[in-house]
């Protein structure tokens, strides 16, 4: 005779609202950075706290010497729907970036530098990943003023207590 094991019952708690998000930005291309910035802004617009944690090439979004020159990746990007060799033609990335920026402007999405400023003013907090900062030989002075601190992964998790972590 089989005996039915009683299934553990999920407590039927009411779905709670999200109070905080911690968004990791790990890519340095335009299409890699924008989703994170848009999600951070969207969070603040809903009254949700938002931290941005920049790691690896994601640091380009907050590097003073690079954040005005973020480009669309035209090589190795199947989403472009163009042959790889065309993507590699000089000027292609520039052109794709210009086109995307024009489209973004149409729907009122600001360029990266203005977006970073908007997010800072909206109360989004910016952090840089210590491991990558050390690897690239950077320091806090290399980043835009919105960046508060260089923190370790451990500190990132500590800061993210109770938050939803989003990796981009």
């Amino acid at each position: 005779m089989t005996e039915l094991l009683e299934q553990p019952h999920e407590t039927t708690a009411k779905p709670t609202t999200i109070e905080k998000v911690s968004i990791v930005v790990s890519k340095g291309s335009l299409e890699g950075i924008y989703p994170a910035l848009i999600m951070a802004n969207g969070a603040r617009m809903e009254g949700i706290d938002a931290d941005l944690f920049f790691t690896f090439f994601g640091l380009d979004a907050i590097r003073k010497d690079r954040f005005e020159k973020i480009k669309v990746a035209t090589v190795g990007n199947p989403g472009m729907h163009i042959p790889t060799w065309i993507g590699a033609v000089p000027g292609m990335s520039w052109l794709a970036t210009k086109m995307m920026q024009r489209q973004m402007e149409k729907i009122d999405i600001p360029p990266v530098p203005e977006f970073v400023e908007l997010l800072g003013d909206s109360g989004v907090r910016f952090f840089a990943c210590k491991a990558t900062v050390d690897m690239f030989g950077l320091s806090l002075e290399d980043f835009v003023p919105q960046v508060e601190e260089i923190i370790s992964v451990g500190e990132f998790y500590e800061r993210s207590a109770g938050a939803e972590i989003v990796f981009t």
Partner: peptide
Amino acid sequence: YELFPKGPAK
């Protein structure tokens, strides 16, 4: 955001 902490536009 100071005036409308829970989301100004909304």
